[in-house]
Amino acid sequence: MASSLQLDDVTKRYGDGPAILEGLSRTFAPGTLTVLVGPNGAGKTTLLRLLSVLSYPTTGTVRYGDLDVHAHPHRYLRHVGLVHAGRQLPEHLSAVEVLEWILRSRGAWADDAPDRIDALLTRLRLDERRTNLVGTYSSGMTQKAQIAAALVAHPDVLLMDEPLRSLDAETADATVGLLKDFVEDGGLAVVASHLTDALTPMADATLPLGAEAPAASS
């Protein structure tokens, strides 16, 4: 069961420029899907980078339960699955090997792991080329592998930046289905996407960012 993810008066600026996020307070509860919306440059990716410890806030804290996520990244990331924008997987491994490596590295390898990997990749419609090297994949296949990499270790928190980008309609539907199951099982999902038609109907909340967003929302 996930804990809540809580932003407390978080401000983030790059250099001495204007704040991308200012005084943002928000609680993401377990069993909910929150969709980040806003125009380009509104701060969606910045917020996801903060939540995934790829960026540190200028002021304020992000807590997962009682844990300050930026003070204890390793303990926090045990609970987290991540899909960042762009290619992020090693090119010289196959998708199956990447997932196996993640499970072994996280101490989550079990006898039924190969079957679970197969089932996950099948659901994401990654075909027999799942055993080919990631470097040979199209952008859509890479995206499928990245979504599988985020989900394979059964995280409590799922952070996704444009997860539906490059996906064909059937895989997009499958991904939305996986997200739905994840949330119904008590998972906490925060997703940034411009393809809101597919996600908004099942979202528990939307968080508007950018010029139209309130200075501090809760």
């Binding site: 790059y14 991308i20 980078r49 410890v53 790829l54 960026s55 540190y56 003070a71 990244p73």
Partner: peptide
Amino acid sequence: YDRHFYHTTAFYAEVMGGGPTA
């Protein structure tokens, strides 16, 4: 060390590329 690693690499990613750059 995880805190030092992620914080330092986050900063350099922001300044050198990977995040908004100045």
